[in-house]
Design a protein around this nucleic acid. Structure first.
Length: 410
RNA sequence: GGCAGGUUGUCCGAGUGGCCAAUGGAAACGGACUGUAAAUCCGUCGCGGUAACGCUACGCAGGUUCGAAUCCUGCACCUGCCA
């Protein structure tokens, strides 16, 4: 928890009985990512604790765009946004319980925003907002001070989000909105609106931005975002992301993302301190979160793959089935017998260009099936494709890919 | 509409006729060290080529020049001030 409107009052409200809480997700991409996971887990816990949960996917706010402090967003088409709304709704469903007596509710703010005319919007909603306050919100202030400026469109975003809160307060009795720390301005805009329009006092709660010891945001893997969809970030890559988290942050992440009990956490903490080489905390974290997002079956598969690929043994010694399953989890490309290692690295997506591939070999960072490649002109021969199918390419300590042989009849 | 300033590689940011594929920083990547950790040290960091070298690149299009990221013209976009 980072900030709340009135912590004492919120605690009292929560203690008194179930409340109704909402959190919104804007369809700015076809998939949710690491950052959204914090909110999903929070909602999940709140629901399990007996509270009612309303999950909003921003069909209208997604069309406008929450102002980023750095730059204006490029508008997405309505069709695109609508499609992403569907995808994100589907992605959220597994995290919450939408059946039973305490079923979560899924809403789309386009339903109540779209019918409002511009005039009604300005007269009925706009009157409650003071520009003087609006320009003080962090993201807006940053943009006003930048040489980018800010469009009227994005400037209006906070009004739309505040309107959502008001609507949900009226229709569903929502009295708490959660969000990331950067959403504070938008959340309080809603709280203020409800106070003015309804004379009611409602709450807002933000979660702190998760950063590593160096102060960097979590959720970036090799410069790419960690997505929740298997198409964008494979379960294998997802699992590996968590396995590689720095020691100093594992325990914190376990507390945030998993349902481990305090006793279990204490045990993991002890293990981390006394027998770090076992990497027990990392394995637990990776397994728990991967299960949460991708399910138990996928987790078992990537665990086995990781075990096989990073185990001490020789990959050649693995039994064919294990090897096949493990490499199936990896990214890779198709090559033919006789393809140069350099070209195979490019085809498998391990490097961006042949030049980079050559460089990697020169740096001593490339191996095929565990054997270091020293010759830039090396080619993949028949014997390199283990079990007649796949050559395991490695760049650096932990970038692996599979070069799958294709019918070389052509 | 007028005036002024800006647009450089993933990002920030130098460079104002040749020595510039372009200083510096960040990010990233590889190696050593380890525990698929952090810190540290070393190295790499446009594309093709073993290399010599070639190609592409400093908003876009032309031009001046033996030679331009650097000068000129037009256009686009951004920012500020004025109307």
């Amino acid at each position: 928890m980072a900030q709340t409107t009135d912590e004492a009052e919120l605690r009292a409200a929560l203690a008194e009985g179930p409340i109704t809480v909402y959190c919104g997700f804007d369809p700015t991409a076809p998939s949710l990512h690491f950052g959204n996971l914090v909110q999903l887990v929070l909602l999940r816990r709140l629901q399990r604790a007996g509270n009612r949960v309303v999950c909003l996917v921003g069909g209208s706010t997604g069309l406008i765009g929450d102002p980023r402090p750095t730059a204006e967003r490029v508008l997405k088409t309505k069709e695109q946004t609508a499609e992403w709304v569907d995808r994100i709704q589907a992605q959220v469903r597994p995290f919450l319980d939408f059946d039973g007596e305490n079923a979560a509710v899924m809403v789309n703010n386009l339903d109540w925003t779209a019918p409002i005319s511009a005039l009604d919007f300005l007269r009925d909603v706009g009157k409650h907002f003071r520009v003087n306050q609006m320009i003080k919100k962090d993201a807006v202030a940053a943009r006003l001070n930048s040489d980018q400026g800010i469009s009227y469109t994005e400037f209006s975003y906070q009004i739309l989000q505040a309107l959502d809160y008001l609507h949900l307060y009226r229709e569903h009795g929502v009295t708490l909105q959660t969000g990331g720390q950067d959403q504070w301005g938008n959340l309080t805009a809603g709280v203020d609106l409800i106070r003015r329009a309804e004379g009611a006092s409602v709450h807002a709660l933000t979660t702190p931005l998760l950063t590593d010891e160096a102060g960097n945001k979590f959720g970036k893997s090799e410069g790419n975002a960690v997505w929740l969809s298997a198409e964008r970030t494979s379960p294998y890559a997802f699992y590996q992301y968590w396995i590689n988290v720095e020691d100093a942050s594992v325990i914190k992440l376990i507390k945030v993302f998993t349902d481990r009990t305090p006793d279990e956490v204490a045990e993991l903490e002890r293990s981390l301190a006394e027998e770090p080489f076992k990497r027990l905390a990392h394995r637990t974290l990776a397994a728990d979160v991967t299960t949460l997002v991708h399910g138990a079956d996928a987790t078992a598969a990537v665990q086995a793959a990781s075990e096989a690929l990073f185990g001490k043994g020789d990959v050649r010694a693995l039994d064919p089935q294990t090897f096949r399953d493990a490499t199936a989890a990896l990214g890779g490309g198709e090559v033919q017998v006789g393809t140069a290692v350099i070209d195979a690295l490019v085809a498998a997506g391990l490097v961006d260009s042949k030049k980079a591939a050559r460089r990697a070999i020169a740096e001593g960072g490339v191996s095929v099936n565990g054997a270091k490649v020293t010759d830039e002109a090396a080619v993949l021969g028949e014997q390199d494709f283990l079990f007649g199918a796949v050559a395991l390419l490695r760049r650096g300590r932990k970038n692996l890919a599979a070069a799958r042989v294709v019918d070389h009849a052509e």
